[in-house]
Design a protein around this nucleic acid. Structure first.
Length: 330
DNA sequence: AAAGTCCGCAACCGCAAGAGT
DNA sequence: AACTCTTGCGGTTGCGGACTT
């Protein structure tokens, strides 16, 4: 082979920049139905004009159901500081100890808040306290990364100077590792339910069961079909509907590329009816994206089967439209 | 009110590791 | 063993909103 690596994708052929809500939903819908065994192939299969890497990142850092949004708690910040002392810039490792937090998020928090804060407190300390011994000062300064020169030390620290500390810490964490392993972030496998939050595990299992039991699924789909017939919203995952929804992508999807990519995704069209089962997922997503519809809070442990029997099932498309409207208005 | 600056965060990039052939 | 492909990681960038002048 020639020197260098082939690019992960043709950058002229893919969309870049911020993700639109429609792209998000398309990605979520696909992953929830089919998982993400192959990130590289996923965009094509899902009908997304993105590279696999971008999809993966978007999923891991933002769309995964167990991603915790909002500010870091003081406890979490403490943990980050502590772990950074031990491991340095091993963000994914640190993230594995903070369920629901991503390496990217932690990295950002460190760079924007914690580093500065520590620098500040240490500076204050230096002014008020007598100088520490060389050994202790080296460990405390390791938590500060104001310049590049300290970054070189970082990579060595966990292996050498703090190896004992590291081992102790690992031992200490073993008790909690079983907990965090359920939601370990960046190390998540290709199976969606492995990263599903505890309170959504039953839903993840449902998805598995559905796949095993096509008969039940057919029945559910039939029920959905009947239900959807009475609702005056776009029911198809067709390009027109996506064009309506995806205002930001009108240009993108306004060309022949639409047909091309839509056709590539059309293999999955046959199963689109099961999307009603994603209703819960979309509700969850709305919470995550801050698009929560009024009166509709979490998914709790209502099963899909139970929901079918409920009279007030909200169609997922209504959520799309509602959420998008809210977001576009804001 | 407008312009300039700062800050936070999402996304991108390139490299490395590991698995598969 | 050599090569290819995919995924994961850490550093960096750039956009957009908040804040200041």
């Amino acid at each position: 082979m020639g020197k260098g690596r082939a690019p992960c994708c043709d950058k002229n052929q893919v969309k870049r920049g911020p993700w639109s809500p429609a792209e998000d939903l398309r990605l979520i819908n696909f992953i929830q139905n089919y998982g993400h065994d192959n990130w590289r192939a996923l965009p094509k299969q899902a009908g997304l004009l993105r590279c696999g890497k971008s999809c993966r990142l978007r999923w891991i850092n933002y769309l995964r159901p167990d991603v915790k949004r909002g500010n870091f708690t003081p406890d979490e910040e403490e943990t980050i500081i502590k772990l950074h002392k031990t491991w340095g810039n091993k963000w994914s490792k640190i993230a594995s100890r903070l369920p629901g937090r991503t390496d990217n998020e932690i990295k950002n928090v460190w760079n924007t808040h914690l580093k500065k804060r520590l620098l500040k407190t240490t500076t204050t300390k230096d002014c008020n306290e007598p100088k520490e011994s060389p050994t202790t000062s080296s460990s405390s300064s390791s938590s500060l990364r104001p310049s590049n020169e300290t970054q070189d030390l970082e990579t060595e620290r966990p292996n050498k100077t703090n190896s004992v500390n590291n081992d102790l810490f690992c031992l200490e964490q073993q008790t909690t590792s079983s907990l965090s392993s359920n939601t370990s972030n960046s190390n998540s496998s290709s199976q969606v339910d492995k990263v599903w939050p505890q309170n959504h595990l039953d839903f993840g299992e449902e998805v598995e069961k559905k796949k095993e039991n096509k008969q039940i699924r057919s029945e559910l789909e039939l029920e959905l079909e009947l239900e959807l017939e009475s609702i005056e919203i776009p029911l198809e995952w067709d390009k027109d509907f996506w064009n309506i929804l995806d205002l930001e992508d009108i240009d993108l999807f306004g060309s022949n590329e639409v047909d091309q990519y839509y056709c590539q995704a059309s293999n999955f069209e046959a199963e689109k009816r099961q999307e009603f089962e994603n209703d819960k997922w979309f509700k969850y997503l709305e919470n995550e994206l801050g698009l929560e519809a009024d009166g509709c809070t979490g998914l709790d442990d209502v099963t899909a089967a139970e929901r079918l029997l409920m009279d007030d099932v909200d169609p997922c498309m209504a959520y799309f439209a509602d959420g998008l409207t809210q977001q576009l208005q804001s």
